[in-house]
């Protein structure tokens, strides 16, 4: 190891300590991400991080790579333009459940459908943290949020199943308890060609756990440990996060399918032949 992760050049060290609350899982996920990037061997200037808005959206501000903190829900769209224009770089979208699946839900399904070559890390803490703990599409049923004071009565997304249905070619779910598996999974995703989606379940001690009297962050980590069942390579059927059921984690999907860029180039070559000039952006 050339440099400990604490002092990794992949972090903007001068900005530490970061803004996340004690026991927040976003920091654990970032810790794993930094390790995965180091293991992947991708040069620092060939990785770009794009975030949306929210607690997890602040990740872009702490990674010492070209990093873009965009608008609420639209990180995927910015990342699409960036990824297509820097085909020799890895573009990572790093954001939260509210940003990616509520306000960004339409972009999420379409970016997955197009199989744009990028890695999406979705830290799911079941709430909007930055704005004070409101309900999101992933808040479990009956749980309280500041905007569901009587408990959440809506159905929730099963994100891995949603992503599989949309055509994502790498789909995983881990928790911040599963640090070793998460590092491995992120490293695989970084090397995967196509749209990768990794859901990372994470405690929000301040705004989700406290309101629902779920104890301290360690209690949720214990839950993650006790309830989780690892199921790799078996698709996303039966992975919903229903109360009482096993918490299914794993690398669910890993398939190779032509990316957006490859589909575009294949079609244009078929139709235009030598008249086709591929879009190379900037190399």
């Amino acid at each position: 190891m050339n440099q400990p992760v604490l002092l990794s050049p992949l972090l903007r060290q001068e900005r530490m300590p970061h803004i996340w609350c004690p026991g927040c899982g976003v920091g654990v996920s970032l810790n794993c991400f930094v390790r995965a990037v180091e293991k992947s061997g991708i040069p620092q200037d060939r990785i770009h991080v794009v975030s949306g808005i929210g607690c997890t959206g602040r990740v872009a501000g702490y990674v010492n790579v070209d990093s873009f903190h965009t608008t609420h829900g639209r990180a995927l769209c910015f990342a699409t333009g960036l990824a297509l224009s820097r085909p020799d770089s890895r573009v990572v979208v790093y954001s939260g459940d509210g940003d990616l699946t509520a306000i960004g839900g339409n972009h999420l399904i379409h970016t997955a459908r197009r199989n744009v070559d990028m890695v999406v890390i979705c830290v799911n803490n079941f709430t909007y943290g930055m704005t004070g703990g409101q309900v999101t599409p992933t808040t479990p049923e009956n749980m309280k949020a500041s905007t569901t004071p009587y408990g959440n009565f809506e159905y929730t997304f099963n994100l891995p199943a949603l992503m599989e249905a949309c055509g994502a070619t790498f789909v995983s779910r881990w928790t911040v308890f599963h640090v070793r598996q998460l590092i491995r999974s992120l490293e695989k995703a970084l090397k995967h060609r196509g749209f990768s989606f990794i859901e990372v379940l994470s405690p929000c001690p301040t705004l989700y756990m406290r309101r629902n009297r779920l104890g301290n962050p360690l209690n949720m980590m214990e839950q993650f440990k006790e309830r989780s069942v690892i199921r790799n390579g078996e698709g996303t059927a039966g992975t919903s996060l229903e109360e009482g059921a096993d918490l299914i984690v794993g690398d669910f999907i890993e398939v190779r399918r032509a990316t957006f860029k490859e589909c575009y180039e294949r079609r244009m070559t078929e139709v235009l032949g030598e008249r086709f000039v591929p879009y190379e952006g900037v190399r």
């Binding site: 400990p4 992760v5 604490l6 972090l11 530490m16 300590p17 970061h18 996340w20 026991g23 927040c24 899982g25 976003v26 920091g27 654990v28 970032l30 810790n31 794993c32 390790r35 911040v176 640090v179 070793r180 590092i183």
Partner: peptide
């Protein structure tokens, strides 16, 4: 270094 992997704050590492 498992402590280092779990640390959300980049504050500890095992050597």
């Amino acid at each position: 270094d498992l402590c280092g992997m779990y640390c959300p704050d980049f504050a500890i590492r095992g050597v």
